[in-house]
């Protein structure tokens, strides 16, 4: 039998246990590994800081519970950042599962900052239609979202009386897990209406959107848990994303070790097989 063939047939459950240990251990015993702030995240923070107090900003929440670990910290931190700067928030969703997730963040944060529903923030809930909805919002947000998440007519909501279309929105933060999401916002809204748009996406999607940052179509980008953690640090409110980054780093180091180890085993066993073939 060639050298290394036993280890190549290792039970994959052994790897699962190691990965689990690499996640659990740093969560129980935080390592507080250092973290740099990347320019796209800094740009998001700077863009929100540049919006004058009292302005209306939009949180476009397009995600579902399966991506909460990455995206919920982004939404929470954006809401915290906006409330702290006295910005008023309009929430609009193109994903049906998003409105209750945003409610989870809005509830405690509005209490913490003493913000009032209808005056300081509003959750318009979900509207079906994808890009058609986005185009409708470009013409009239109240007509596209005639009621809020709770079913109240937008005509009865004071904040919405100041909103007609994207001209009244100083900044849009799009938190997106897929389609419709960041791509549709860039294509249909940013390119047509020239809104000040930033995005927070899952790490899987992030590489697709960095070209939009480079071209200036996105003001900034939060990519995955790391982007969320950096944003939390900038806003001065380390939370779930920051506490998860130790585990993230340890697992990444472990996976790098797996890759190196796998390659060594591969080359050793290949050489061993060649020798065996020559001997025969």
């Amino acid at each position: 039998m060639a050298k290394g063939s036993d280890i190549r047939n290792i039970d994959r459950r052994f790897i699962f246990v190691l990965v689990l240990a690499a996640v659990v251990w740093p969560l129980l015993h935080p390592l507080r590994l250092p973290m740099d702030i990347s320019p796209p995240v800094q740009s998001v923070y700077d863009a929100v800081e540049a919006v004058p107090a009292g302005s209306i900003v939009m949180l476009a929440a397009d995600y579902s519970p399966d991506t909460m670990p990455e995206l919920q910290p982004m939404a929470e931190t954006f809401i915290r950042h906006a409330f702290r700067r006295d910005l008023r928030i309009v929430v609009a969703c193109l994903w049906p599962a998003s409105p209750p997730l945003v409610e989870q963040a809005l509830g405690p944060l509005s209490e913490e900052f003493g913000k009032e529903y209808g005056t300081d923030y509003v959750n318009l809930g979900y509207m079906a239609g994808g890009i058609v909805t986005l185009l409708g919002m470009g013409a009239s947000i109240p007509e596209t979202f005639p009621t809020d998440y709770g079913g109240t007519s937008v005509d009865e909501i004071p904040l919405m009386l100041e909103v007609e279309n994207f001209d009244d929105i100083a900044f849009v933060m799009e938190v997106s897990a897929g389609t419709p999401g960041t791509r549709e916002w860039v294509q249909q809204v940013q390119s047509r209406f020239r809104v000040n748009l930033a995005s927070g996406t899952t790490a899987v999607g992030a590489p697709n959107f960095y070209p939009y940052v480079q071209s200036g179509q996105l003001t900034g980008l939060l990519g995955g848990l790391k982007g969320a953690a950096e944003y939390e640090i900038l806003v001065g409110a380390p939370g779930d994303a920051t506490s998860g980054m130790d585990a993230q780093s340890v697992v990444h180091a472990l996976i790098v070790c797996f890759i190196i180890f796998g390659n060594i085993v591969y080359f050793v066993s290949r050489r061993s097989e060649k020798r065996l073939a020559q001997d025969v």
Binding site: L27, D66, M68, P69, E70, A203, G224, G244, Q248, H252
Partner: peptide, 9 residues
């Protein structure tokens, strides 16, 4: 990174 984030969550 994305998949590990879900596990961490």
């Amino acid at each position: 990174m994305s998949r590990v984030s879900l596990l961490i969550g």
